[in-house]
């Protein structure tokens, strides 16, 4: 029983990370139909910058903020300078973003090298604490990560559901062309959303570098997980990203714990099942 609960907690931790990474990805896809294959690179960039900021200032939250902002800026720059030029040409955008992800990965390898980085945690989070009832220790940072993901999720939901910007984003998801015909500069909104997606990816990168660690390859790992999460949850739906992350995170950990040989199969079995039964994703809406 204790083992099961610990595995569940690990699954939730992973799900929280997956959600942070996938929420920005799904937001960008939902509005722009852009499959941003550089999303993982933005996450890794955020992680590295967050590491540097946290090391220099010695203040962990500042690292999260710095990593998030750096990736937000890079995301806005990518949309403004490159992907925005191919708006409406999704295949070209996707290919360009693959090229970008390779270039960014190589530049980061050049600057930060091939070693593994872990962000130093503040003392309050560095240790573990005893879980009530179970009587076993658990890393504090992992619980902080879960709380962080929940807070980010709720904030994102509030922004999208309650603000004018959120209404414009939703309108753009529904009918981008009509939004333009009503006088909205969609190109500008796209840049804002790309920055928002980058912010989420960057923060996810710093959090990943704190709870786990980051190294070359982390970018592709999270890109893949984001793709799977978003396919399962439904493209363009933040709630779907949360649900997809939960399913995939838990499935991965249960698989690892109870059927290590076939662990990775569970993830893709879920994906195949969803694609067969509900191709638009669990909370996605089919194209009309």
């Amino acid at each position: 029983m204790t083992f099961f609960l610990i595995v569940t907690l690990n699954g939730l931790t992973l799900a929280a990370l997956y959600f942070l990474a996938a929420s920005g990805f799904t937001l960008i896809f939902g509005l722009m139909r852009t499959v941003n294959m550089a999303h993982g690179a933005l996450l890794l960039l955020g992680g590295y910058v967050g590491f540097e900021v946290a090391k220099t200032t010695g203040f962990w939250p500042l690292g999260i903020l710095g990593g998030g902002l750096a990736a937000a800026f890079a995301g806005a720059l990518i949309q403004f300078g490159i992907l925005g030029r191919f708006q409406g040409d999704e295949l070209r955008q996707t290919l360009a973003s693959i090229a970008l992800s390779i270039i960014m990965a190589d530049l980061m390898l050049w600057y930060w090298g091939g070693i593994t980085y872990q962000v130093a945690l503040p003392d309050a989070l560095a240790g573990g604490f005893k879980l009530p009832l179970l009587g076993v220790g658990y890393a504090s940072i992992r619980l902080v990560l879960i709380i962080f993901a929940v807070v980010v999720g709720i904030t994102l939901w509030l922004v999208i559901a309650k603000t004018r910007l959120g209404a414009i984003i939703r309108a753009g998801v529904d009918d981008r062309e009509m939004l333009r015909a009503l006088g909205f500069d969609v190109a500008k909104i796209f840049i804002i959303v790309f920055a928002l997606g980058g912010l989420l990816a960057g923060m996810a990168g710093v959090v990943a570098a704190s709870a786990l660690s980051i190294a070359p390859g982390t970018d592709l790992q999270f890109l893949l997980s984001s793709l799977v999460v978003v396919i399962v949850g439904g493209m363009g739906s933040v709630g779907g990203a949360a649900l997809g992350a939960l399913l995939i995170g838990l499935a991965e950990q249960y698989g690892l714990a109870y059927a290590p040989t076939y662990g990775v199969v569970f993830t893709f079995a879920i994906m195949v099942f969803v694609l067969a039964v509900r191709p638009q994703g669990l909370l996605g809406r089919s194209e009309t």
Partner: peptide
């Protein structure tokens, strides 16, 4: 072509 995920009020507030 009204936006299906916006309320009436959101349509107008946006404009």
């Amino acid at each position: 072509r009204v936006f299906r995920s916006l309320t009436v009020e959101e349509h107008l507030r946006m404009m």
